[in-house]
Design a protein around this nucleic acid. Structure first.
Lengths: 174, 174
DNA sequence: CATTAGTTTCATTTTTTATTGAAATATTAC
DNA sequence: GTAATATTTCAATAAAAAATGAAACTAATG
């Protein structure tokens, strides 16, 4: 089933060196949009998107050339993506430069978002609610009831979130 | 059960005009942190937080005074929060100024986030994947297989998200 | 209907965040 | 070793986002 007539394409869909294919562009756009949810800058989305679309690992200077980003942005973006486990360094025998490839475990992004953005805030929120409940004692009776009701609602909602997140993590994992 | 001796408190836990109580501050901090997830600016979190902590509706100038924000920020923040349904205008008989109160349906924020941030991106993403699959045809056979695998993974993940979000919405609703 | 009070708008400023690129550091080749 | 190449760091700059406040607008009062 291996192709027999892999002719050199006249309008190659894949990299004619330093140029993005339409496929690359779609992937980049998509990941810019998704990684933005995590609060990551455009350049990081671009890097991941291009690596995702690339059949083979890319070196830093290829990223720089194709995406027109600075070496600093490339270096920092890769560092960040590696720290998330979203990009891996690939050993390429006899190659001077490091080569990078996208880890395809996409759930990783959602997981990071939940663990780093949502869960800490929920926990912090619950702690804060406890502190607020303590402060309620000092309120005049008239206000206390109403305030208590609000605290209860807030707590309830935070707890709901707190129980839901592990389910989501589990669902994503599988 | 109505309090009989509502003495004028020496160190009032509630507003001695233009000053935030410790309770206010806790609530404000909490909502700044949460609304930031939605990409909302600090001032909006402050406004909602203060309204949430306030037993009675507040006028715009009270917000401005207590939070030390400009009239512009107050006006725009309230407008935005009203558009989300998170803040309501309260009719106060014989009052010149409008008065605002926090809607306590907190799930609203999560709902907005899901409907405005997540769902559109997922749908857009799926559409994009379709476009990418079409582009795959032009790839040389060697790359095609690998690329197809990636597209499949991406699609799978987007679909997974797409089925999960309605569950979450439903869970939040109840 | 004119005066005053309240709110919104929006050009400008401030603050925050992201990017650049040259210099410092690290790595590989010879 | 040291020359050549690759990567990281970080101060400076650019870009994006938020806040300000004066002016325009709107609504209520007498």
């Amino acid at each position: 089933m291996i192709s027999v007539h892999t002719k050199i394409d006249a309008s190659p869909a894949s990299s004619e060196k330093g140029k993005l294919t339409p496929l690359d562009i779609e992937a980049i756009d998509l990941f810019i949009s998704f990684l933005k949810i995590l609060g990551l800058p455009k350049s990081v989305g671009e890097i991941y998107g291009l690596l995702f679309a690339s059949p083979k690992p890319l070196a830093m200077d290829e990223l720089i050339e194709k995406l027109h980003i600075s070496s600093g942005a490339a270096s920092q973006g890769l560092k960040l993506l590696r720290s998330l486990g979203a990009v891996k360094t690939v050993y390429t025998p006899g190659a001077r430069k490091d080569h990078y490839t996208a880890d395809l475990e996409l759930s990783r992004f959602a997981t990071v978002f939940i663990k780093e953005e949502l869960q800490p805030r929920l926990e912090n929120g619950l702690e804060r609610v406890r502190r607020m409940e303590a402060l309620l004692a000092e309120l005049p009776e008239a206000e206390k009831q109403e305030a208590l009701e609000r605290m209860t609602r807030l707590k309830h909602w935070l707890e709901k979130g707190n129980t839901m997140l592990p389910w989501i993590l589990e669902f994503l994992r599988t």
